[in-house]
Amino acid sequence: MPFKHKDLLGIEGLSPEDIERILHTAAPFKTLFTRSIKKVPTLRGKTVALLFYEPSTRTRTSFELAAARLSADAMSLNVDSSSIKKGESLVDTALNLEAMKVDFMVVRHSVSGAPELLAKSVQAHVINAGDGNHEHPTQALLDLFTMREKKKKIQGLNVAIIGDILHSRVARSNIWALTKMGANVRLCGPATLVPQEMRSAFGKSVSVTYQVKEALDGADVAYVLRLQTERQLDHLFPSLREYHEFYGLDARKLAWAKKDCIVMHPGPMNRGVEIASPVADGPQSVILDQVTNGIAVRMAVMYLLAGGKV
């Protein structure tokens, strides 16, 4: 069954079959990493432009490696957030790239909806690497891949997502992905960071609790979100110390979950804030697996978009 999408803008627009296809395709790509030659010639000659309007080393590197391992040529454009306010508009930049016959554009932007605007204007395949608070689809896909790798399934898993849900595109993409694949999602954080709309905005019921103990009770996966310390200035929480005390994942709280609960984090971590170092580095943590899997999943996405017939 062909992958009928020109772009990957979000999980919202994917069917469970699409998600299954991507996860299934990522597996053989992962096995390549153990070879001495980590490349395959599949996307040889294709050009991948990375437009990262928000700084990010790890996601950008992950995409660059994914492209390189498919034998495509990856190039990163030097853009930063000031380019948004002055100078060339996003669409203008993209049209210029299109004129240079770029095949893929991987976009990270601080404004929700920017990749969608782009995708409408260019023929290249647009991959959303994170837009505003909206979605970060490849993150959710690699998270699902990791969960299935460790837990052998996704359906029926109890997944607790803890932290700043309000501002998190990672949370939104994960909620879509997990609900589409039949997992039970529990959102947890202080009321200032977990808006009421989350209960119903995603089509399927997702439970919301302000108590970590309740969220982790019987949890198979503890997914910890990064807390941006600037949020303190918006009166969203009083202090980092208080946040860590009530919501930071440490050994004491992790013990409330199932014994084999895995600990996940999209990175980068604020150690000592949303997650304690012993937990981040402990035996239940699969955070580094997420990083490895990220490349395989991104390779799978590029492969499927390239060969997909829309």
């Binding site: 909806g113 709309e197 905005a201």
Partner: peptide, 11 residues
């Protein structure tokens, strides 16, 4: 502000 703004990731 509502369900749609939540889904779209807009303030």
């Amino acid at each position: 502000e509502g369900d749609l703004s939540s889904r779209l990731g807009l303030k």
